[in-house]
Design a protein around this nucleic acid. Sequence first.
DNA 1: GTATGTGCAAAGCTTTTGCACCCGC
DNA 2: GCGGGTGCAAAAGCTTTGCACATAC
Lengths: 142, 142
Amino acid sequence: MTDTIAKRCEESGLRMTGQRRTIADVLDQCRDHPDVEELHARAAARDPRISIATVYRTVKLFEEEGILEKVDFGDGRARYEDAERAHHDHLIDMTTGRVIEFVDPEIEALQEKIAEKLGYTLKGHRMELYGIPRKTHESRGD
Amino acid sequence: MTDTIAKRCEESGLRMTGQRRTIADVLDQCRDHPDVEELHARAAARDPRISIATVYRTVKLFEEEGILEKVDFGDGRARYEDAERAHHDHLIDMTTGRVIEFVDPEIEALQEKIAEKLGYTLKGHRMELYGIPRKTHESRGD
DNA sequence: GTATGTGCAAAGCTTTTGCACCCGC
DNA sequence: GCGGGTGCAAAAGCTTTGCACATAC
């Protein structure tokens, strides 16, 4: 149901160079949230000529085309994810750094309601939950 | 119900230098969300000898003591706010950059429920809404 | 008096950019 | 072929840090 990133690039009329195709492919295969340096490492594994400057330029371009979305986990590095995948928020496991994606329609609705109450039309939001794995039942002393 | 920042610094056993006191006072008087450079400008207006390095060191120290909380509006600059003030989230006016603080108990409860459903105990969260002012002439009942 | 804080400037990190060369269309 | 893309390295922002000096307790 979701087109590849490369396909959407072509539909946007972007010139598809070898580097852009490689970066698009790498992004398609991401199941995690790599930062730009990591993205560059993965792209360079396929084509060592790709420079990090190109990766920066490319993700910014894709973002401007609405193909990617920038996310920020507060660690000072930019991350990008496929904008076309269903919208979701993030829960970050504070013990491992693992990122869990989730969608909650109630939250979405509530956010819209809050914005409206404050006199605004909601255009976007960012929400991250930070948590630790719940003790299932062996615990004493929470 | 809220002590001044300077008072909390003393209670934390921090050595209170002139610079720290000035920075604490500036923070107490903030009704907005200045970045570190702006904080330095306000502090330097009272004591021109304060360097920006000291401001950076001081806000980080206060954060480690739990007196301040770092917030990030995605513009690449760090901002800090009083951690003891009642918890709130932010709505950012996309047309002006103005930041509106709000609290919504429903959201808080929902977030906790979501974390729990995913097997986590919620330890913190970050939520920013981005919106544009709503046209008022068609609104009813505000 | 001593441990700690501070100013200055240099360095660190992530990201951007100028410029000469390269490539998709 | 031409206009835009790329690599390299330098530069730009924000933040941190080494070092010599200053200051709180």
